[in-house]
């Protein structure tokens, strides 16, 4: 059966009918990317200032570590279904859940990034007469950039993966092909959808790898 599914998935992907309209791959891909960007932007607006503050002052570090650690134990599917039952069908619930899940990697990237900066360098900057704000913006953040970008990398991949699961609660996006395919036993469609998500994840990861490398060089 496996060969048939592969052939079927190939046929599904080369069928031009699946590349247009609101249920076509480009539309679903845009939807998926849209949710990802929206989620990560909101999460970054919360996590980055908080993470930079924790990393700069060293305060609440234990709390941040415990929080990011325990959120890993929270199953995404449970959180998604629970939020929808509470907030109702629509965009708010799923996006809320996705934001909650992408805050920890961004937070960790920010505070771990600042912690990785050599204490002597920071002391030297203070000694030269930098204000605390200048120490943060001109010394700590530039040096922490590779790890901060790394936080974005994990967050984006996490959201791309979880948004696929969120198709189960009606979010749309590329996960729709997988969930519907399993429900109506159209495995070629499921496999085709899965391959598109995998390619998306690999492309995004490669992009971030390049960004991280250039952040480390600058």
């Amino acid at each position: 059966m496996s060969d048939n599914v592969f052939v079927g998935a190939g046929q599904w992907l080369t069928d031009s009918a699946h590349w247009s309209g609101t249920d076509g791959v480009p539309a679903r891909l845009l939807e998926h990317l849209g949710y990802t960007v929206l989620t990560v932007v909101i999460a970054a607006a919360i996590a980055l200032p908080l993470g930079l503050w924790i990393g700069h002052t060293g305060r609440l570090r234990g709390l941040a570590v415990a929080l990011t650690g325990s959120l890993r134990a929270l199953p995404t599917l449970g959180l998604l279904t629970l939020v929808v039952l509470w907030v109702g069908i629509g965009l708010t619930g799923p996006i809320l859940a996705l934001v909650v899940l992408s805050v920890p990697p961004l937070l960790a990237g920010a505070y771990a990034g600042l912690e990785s900066v050599d204490r002597h360098t920071i002391d030297a900057a203070r000694g030269l007469g930098f204000t605390e704000w200048q120490v943060l913006t001109r010394v700590e953040i530039p040096l922490a950039l590779p790890l901060i970008v790394g936080g974005f990398r994990s967050a984006v991949l996490q959201v791309v993966s979880t948004a696929t699961v969120a198709a189960y609660i009606g979010l749309g996006g590329l996960g729709t092909y997988l969930i519907e395919g399993v429900q109506i036993r159209d495995y070629p469609m499921t496999l085709a959808g899965s391959l598109v998500v995998v390619v998306l994840a690999l492309v995004l990861d490669a992009g971030f790898a390049l960004a991280q490398r250039s952040a480390a060089r600058s």
């Binding site: 496996s2 997988l178 899965s194």
Partner: peptide
Amino acid sequence: SILYTLPSLPLLTIIPVILG
């Protein structure tokens, strides 16, 4: 590390096709 970037749900549907 590339393996780790692959999303879980798609992988769960690809593996049965590979393993039969």
